[in-house]
Design a protein around this nucleic acid. Structure first.
Length: 266
DNA sequence: AGCGGAACCTGTCGGC
DNA sequence: TGCCGACAGGTTCCGC
C-alpha cells in the first residue's frame, strides 16, 4: 500500500504522537511479523526520533535498539489514547503512558525489526529521490545493463528509494515516457525528465498527505488527498486530461501499469 | 548478474 | 444468494 509519500506522511504524523514518549508495554499479537529481535527490548526506552528511508520507517531510541517498520501492502499505524477495543486486524501493539500505537495489517505482509543501532534490515536501497547526489548520470549507470521496462526499473528500490506502483505510473506519464521501454534505452535527457517528474510528483503527494484509494490512513484515521490529483493510475478507459485518448492498463512484472498511449510515445 | 515467475497473506469486488 | 476469479500503495526467493 504505502509508497514514499504515504510513509513520509505517517512519519510526520508519528512525530506528533510518540516522539519523546517512553514505551511502557508491548504486545506481539502476531509474532511472525516481528522479523528480527524482540519487542521486549524496547520496553522502558524513549522514542527519540522518527525517520524514514525509502518505504521503511525507523525509530531511534534512548536504548541500544532501533525500531524499523515496513507497512508493505496493507499496513497502517493507528493511535488510540483511550481504553476502547482495538479495531480489527491489529498485529502488534506498542503501549505508552498516554496511549497505544497499533500496527494494523489485514494481509500480514508488513513487519517490524528490533535491531541494534546501525543494522538496517534492507539489503539494496537506492538514493532518496530528493538527494542532490541523485543525477541522470547516476541513474544511467544503474540502468545501463537493465533491459527490463523502465516502469519495472522504477519499482526496484535499488534504483530510486521509495517509488511504488502508483507513483511509477504517474511519474512516467508526467515525463511523457512509454513505460514499456527498456530501462537502458532511456537517454540522459529523458532520465533528467524522469528525475524532475519524480520530485514534482512525490513532493505534491507528500503535501497532500499521500494517496488513499482504499486502505491507507494516518494514525488519526484520516486518509490522504492525492487520489484527487492522479492522472493515470486506476483510470483505465478514462480520458487522458491532455489529449482525450483512453488511458490503458497493462501488466508488467505482475503489477498494473496505467499510461496514455498517445502522450507517452517516446 | 539479470530476469521472469511464484510465493507470502487476507480481503473485496464484479460477473455469472 | 453464492461461488470464483481477478485484483490490491510490496518484497523476497528460486531457477534459468
Amino acid at each position: 500500500m504505502p509508497e514514499l509519500p504515504e510513509v513520509e506522511s505517517v512519519r510526520r504524523d508519528l512525530i506528533t504522537r510518540v516522539q519523546g514518549n517512553k514505551v511502557t508495554w508491548v504486545e506481539p499479537l502476531l509474532p511472525r511479523m516481528v522479523k528480527c529481535g524482540t519487542l521486549d527490548d524496547i520496553v522502558g526506552v524513549e522514542f527519540t526520533s522518527i525517520n524514514r528511508r525509502g518505504k521503511f520507517l525507523f525509530i531511534d531510541t534512548s536504548g541500544e535498539m532501533t525500531v524499523y517498520i515496513h507497512l508493505r501492502m496493507s499496513g497502517t499505524l493507528v493511535w488510540r489514547k483511550g481504553i476502547e477495543d482495538n479495531p480489527s486486524h491489529i498485529r502488534i501493539v506498542i503501549g505508552f503512558q498516554n496511549g497505544r500505537l497499533l500496527f494494523r495489517d489485514p494481509r500480514t505482509l508488513g513487519g517490524i525489526w528490533i535491531n541494534r543501532k546501525g543494522e538496517h534490515p534492507w539489503k539494496k536501497m537506492g538514493l532518496e529521490p530528493f538527494d542532490d547526489n541523485l543525477t541522470p548520470e547516476v541513474l544511467q549507470k544503474l540502468l545501463v545493463k537493465r533491459s527490463i521496462p523502465i516502469k519495472t526499473a522504477l519499482l526496484d528500490q535499488g534504483t530510486i528509494a521509495g517509488i511504488g506502483n502508483i507513483y511509477a505510473s504517474e511519474i512516467l506519464f508526467d515525463a511523457k515516457i512509454d513505460p514499456r521501454r527498456p530501462a537502458n534505452s532511456i537517454s540522459n535527457g529523458e532520465l533528467l525528465k524522469v528525475l524532475n517528474s519524480t520530485r514534482t510528483i512525490l513532493n505534491a503527494a507528500i503535501e497532500a498527505n499521500g494517496t488513499t484509494l482504499k486502505d491507507f490512513k494516518l494514525s488519526n484515521g484520516r486518509g490522504g488527498e492525492f487520489a484527487n490529483f492522479l492522472k493515470v493510475y486506476a483510470k483505465k478507459e478514462e480520458e487522458c486530461y491532455i489529449c482525450k485518448s483512453k488511458i490503458e492498463r497493462i501488466v508488467q512484472s505482475q503489477r498494473s501499469t496505467f499510461f496514455c498511449p498517445s502522450c507517452q510515445t517516446n
